[in-house]
Amino acid sequence: MTTVLFYILGFIMLTATLLCITRRNPVHAVIYLVAGFFALALMFYLLGAPLAAAWQIIVYAGAIMVLFLFIIMMLGLAPQETPEGPGWRRWGPLVLLSASLMVCTVLLIMQDPAAGKEIGDFYLAPQAVGESLFGRYVLAVEMVSFQLLFATIGAYLLGRPLSKGEGQ
């Protein structure tokens, strides 16, 4: 069962990301990417990493993709005119992908209603992730936090309005 689900999810993920990079409309591309991220999250769950699955949905599908959509809308990159051809051509594939994702989710829930350890041979509890992150890998976490600090500084340095006489 889990093997079958794995291949179905893999197929959904590849199709969604392939559609994502071939779409002309950036909004459509983002939506397909979200579908791909959902499939990836389910796959993480299937592999026994529920925390990674939750992060995938909250951080990537949720926060980052919303930010992408926001920027696309703000810059007015989305095409204004509707393309030719019947409408289902545009929303059909997405509905199919989402429906299959839904089916996979339902199957997963039926398989493992208590979200316990029955799926797969391996189960990584969120507690273990936390202990490893802030125990063994605490230095790596600190380095990444430094990186975020300097990324913010970079965004500020490159994004603020030009001050008087700068770069002359």
Binding site: M143, F150, L162
Partner: peptide, 16 residues
Amino acid sequence: ETFTLAFYILIASNRN
């Protein structure tokens, strides 16, 4: 990634 990130910014530091 640490030093690559710093270089992304340093290279483009002259915005004119």
